[in-house]
Design a protein around this nucleic acid. Structure first.
Length: 265
DNA sequence: AAGAGACCCTGGATGC
DNA sequence: TGCATCCAGGGTCTCT
């Protein structure tokens, strides 16, 4: 499931592949979640960047294309003629190359904005310098909901999803049901460092492929082999050999070690 | 305001 | 073998 490291990987690959190219045509095959651009084509792609889990392609004249992969969205580079299975939209560039938006479950979205329209409201970038333990502490002050749910709240921190929330909490030895406001200063420091470390490592490995995620050339990510908690129910904790447990928090599966991530000290 | 839960959507796994 | 049910979860919406 694309989270920050997966979206970052795709964004970097896209940036190398399509910046400087002219978008000649955009075809929509399916679903009302993919909007057609109102701007006139062709347009030159000026930049491709990531904000939270969004991919933002900026075009000359200031218009932007916003792509969100949600659960099963894939962006594949190619020169395909035939429509791929579950292909929902396609970008055509002036040199004959194409970009295919494939999405089995049709949750993904593509939208178009002119220069004056803003992105959705999103919280801090966890890999930015300004995301510090002090800042995270401020964000958690007075929060009564579970720290796991707070990490998934995109209006607080943008980009963390279920996998990296569980991995960060395991690394920081914090129980996912702890109330945000009850974390000690030392715990907030550990959590901040864990989030940054895990996201950076996952980007280095090209993200995690547990089901559908693919890079733009179809390759799989590699970080799934480094994970310590997520989807390891019943397997042994790498720190203490206790069995990893699974509980539901906010409707999401949450994996943790009951021995080294304690609810009460 | 904050938090909890429903909903969207499909394919693969599991159960009988 | 066949059919039903469950599960995966990001974001948005509604309700309290």
């Amino acid at each position: 499931m694309p989270e920050l490291p997966e979206v970052e990987t795709i964004t970097r690959e896209l940036s190398r592949a399509i910046v400087g190219k002219k978008l000649n045509k955009f075809s929509v095959f399916d679903t009302e979640k993919i909007l057609r651009p109102r701007l006139a084509l062709p347009r030159k792609i000026v930049s491709v960047r990531r904000r939270g889990k969004y991919i933002v392609c900026e075009m000359d004249g200031g218009s932007r294309c916003l792509i969100h992969l949600r659960m099963t969205g894939e962006l594949l580079l190619g020169r395909q003629i035939a429509r791929r299975k579950h292909e929902r939209a396609r970008f055509y560039f002036h040199d004959g190359s194409t970009l295919h938006f494939v999405d089995v479950r049709r949750f993904g979205t593509i939208g178009w904005r002119d220069g004056s329209q803003s992105l959705p409201r999103l919280g801090m970038e966890p890999l930015s310098k300004s995301f510090s333990a002090k800042k995270l502490g401020e964000l958690l002050r007075g929060r009564k909901k579970a720290i796991k749910s707070a990490l998934l709240d995109q209006q607080l921190i943008a980009g963390i999803g279920n996998i990296y929330a569980d991995e960060s909490l395991w690394t920081a030895k914090i129980h996912p049901l702890r109330k945000g406001s009850t974390l000690s200063g030392a715990e907030v420091v550990r959590l901040t460092a864990s989030i940054k470390k895990i996201l950076r490592r996952a980007i280095k490995k090209g993200g995690s492929t547990l089901r559908d995620y693919r890079r733009t050339d179809g390759r799989l990510g590699n970080y799934q082999n480094s994970r310590k908690a997520y989807a390891r129910e019943g397997q042994l904790c790498f720190r203490c050999r206790a069995k990893i447990r699974r509980i539901k928090i906010g409707g999401r599966s949450s994996y943790f070690c009951p021995a080294c991530q304690r609810l009460k000290p």
